[in-house]
Amino acid sequence: MIELDEIDRRLLRELAADAALPTAELGRRLGLSQPAAWRRVKRLREAGVLAGRRLRLDAGALGFGVTVFLGVKLAAKSQVNLADFERAVSAIREVQLVEHVLGLYDFRLRVVARDLGDFERVLRRRIMTLPGVGALEANVLLSEERRPGPI
């Protein structure tokens, strides 16, 4: 594990807010030169703390007005069933996130759809036909108050 100082933590907060921030601007905000900011970013990348950049799209603006969190319990559990399910569900475009969890369900999925009818189609024709699917529980997202950010 890498030791992070206060400047590293501030750098991570800045990049979490805007991952495309140029190192010159990042350095200015942190009171560092551009090369010093670049060296810190490089060190954090090499240590695995920074694991790439992601563009966050607004699903609603793209016509996906419904987000559903779907709990999936597999009918039978084995390494083969888990791997088969993960591989199959990851191939479904509307499934934005696949989390293997401990608890009542084996997996938690974040599914986007144009509307409830579209979600029903995805659920019936794609998700329910996957290998090993047992019980399901759907929770429709009403609002999102806080998006994931820095730890």
Results as ranks from 00 to 15, higher is better:
Leu102Tyr: 12
Lys73Cys: 06
Gly134His: 01
Ile2Gln: 10
Asp115Ala: 09
Gly27Lys: 04
Gln79Leu: 13
Arg147Asn: 08
Ser143Asp: 10
Asp58Ile: 02
Leu123Gly: 04
Ile151Ala: 12
Ala36Thr: 13
Leu62Gln: 04
Pro131Thr: 02
Gly60Arg: 15
Pro148Asp: 02
Arg124Leu: 08
Glu86Cys: 08
Phe64Cys: 00
Arg56Val: 15
Gln96His: 05
Asp84Glu: 11
Glu145Met: 10
Val111Phe: 03
Ala47Asp: 11
Val133Thr: 02
Leu141Thr: 13
Glu25Val: 14
Gly132Ile: 01
Ala47Trp: 11
Gly117Asn: 15
Leu70His: 03
Ala75Val: 04
Ala20Val: 08
Ala61Val: 15
Ala113Arg: 03
Leu123Phe: 08
Leu130Met: 08
Leu82Asn: 02
Gly149Gln: 04
Asn139Val: 14
Ser78Arg: 01
Asp106Asn: 04
Ile127Met: 03
Ala83His: 06
Val80Tyr: 01
Asn81Tyr: 12
Glu145Ala: 15
Gly48Met: 11
Leu97Pro: 00
Gly60Phe: 09
Gly132Phe: 02
Ser33Tyr: 08
Ala91Lys: 14
Leu44Lys: 09
Gln96Val: 06
Val68Thr: 09
Arg146Gly: 07
Val98Leu: 12
Ile92Arg: 06
Ile7Met: 05
Glu145Lys: 11
Phe69Ser: 05
Gly134Glu: 02
Arg29Thr: 03
Leu141Phe: 06
Tyr105His: 12
Pro131Met: 00
Leu102His: 10
Gly31Trp: 06
Ile92Asp: 05
Val111Glu: 00
Ala76Thr: 05
Val80Gly: 01
Arg9Trp: 02
Val49Glu: 09
Arg126Ala: 10
Arg146Ser: 13
Phe107Thr: 04
Leu116Ala: 14
Leu44Val: 12
Leu12His: 02
Arg10Gly: 00
Ala88Gly: 00
Glu145Tyr: 14
Arg40Ser: 12
Arg93Tyr: 07
